[in-house]
Simulated assay, not measured.
Amino acid sequence: MTGGRKQEIWILAFKSALLLYVVFRSYAEAGGAWYIASILFYMCLELTTHTVRIPLLRNLAGAATILFLLSVSDELHPLLFTLAPMAIYGLGAAFLRSPILLFLLTLAPLPFLPPDAQVTYGFIGAIGFLFQAALGEYERTIAAQKQTSEQLQADNLRLTKTLAENDEYLKQSAYTIQLEERSRLSQEIHDKIGHAMTGALIQMEAAKRLQATDAERSAELLQNAITISKEGIETIRQVLKNMKPLSEQLGVNRMKLFVEQFEGSHGLKTVVTFAGDMDRIEPIHWKIIQQNVTEALTNTVKYAGATSAAIHIEVLRTLVKASVTDNGAGAAKVVKGLGIAGMEERAAAVNGQVIVDGSRGFSVTTLLPFAGA
Rank of each mutant, 00 (worst) to 15 (best):
L80S: 04
R360V: 09
D155T: 12
Q118I: 07
T318F: 15
G31T: 02
G251K: 00
M278P: 07
G342C: 15
R53E: 15
Y42E: 00
E216R: 13
A206V: 14
V315T: 12
L210P: 11
S98P: 12
A37K: 09
D167A: 11
N166Y: 03
G3P: 13
T300Q: 01
G128S: 10
D279Y: 02
V52R: 15
S218H: 13
G32M: 09
R209D: 03
K146C: 13
I311H: 03
Q7G: 09
I289N: 12
Q172H: 08
S38T: 02
F258R: 05
Q187P: 11
Q153A: 08
L246S: 11
D326P: 02
F24N: 01
G305Y: 08
I202L: 14
A348K: 15
L170Q: 11
K161C: 08
Y42K: 00
G62I: 01
I228N: 01
T198Y: 15
E314V: 08
Q153W: 10
F362G: 01
R317H: 11
I124A: 03
A306I: 08
Q291I: 15
L338I: 10
G232R: 01
M204P: 04
Q172R: 07
D357E: 06
R158W: 12
S38F: 00
V271F: 05
I88Q: 03
E248G: 13
L297P: 01
G31V: 02
K161P: 06
S247L: 09
A93H: 05
S229A: 07
I193A: 05
C44K: 10
H312Y: 07
S149G: 09
G62V: 01
G330E: 00
S265D: 03
E188C: 13
D357H: 03
I284T: 04
L20Y: 01
L105F: 05
T318S: 15
P114C: 09
K161V: 10
R237Y: 05
T141M: 15
T307C: 15
G305M: 07
T227K: 06
P78D: 12
V354T: 06
R5L: 11
A63G: 00
A17C: 03
T106E: 04
A207K: 11
S363V: 10
L250G: 05
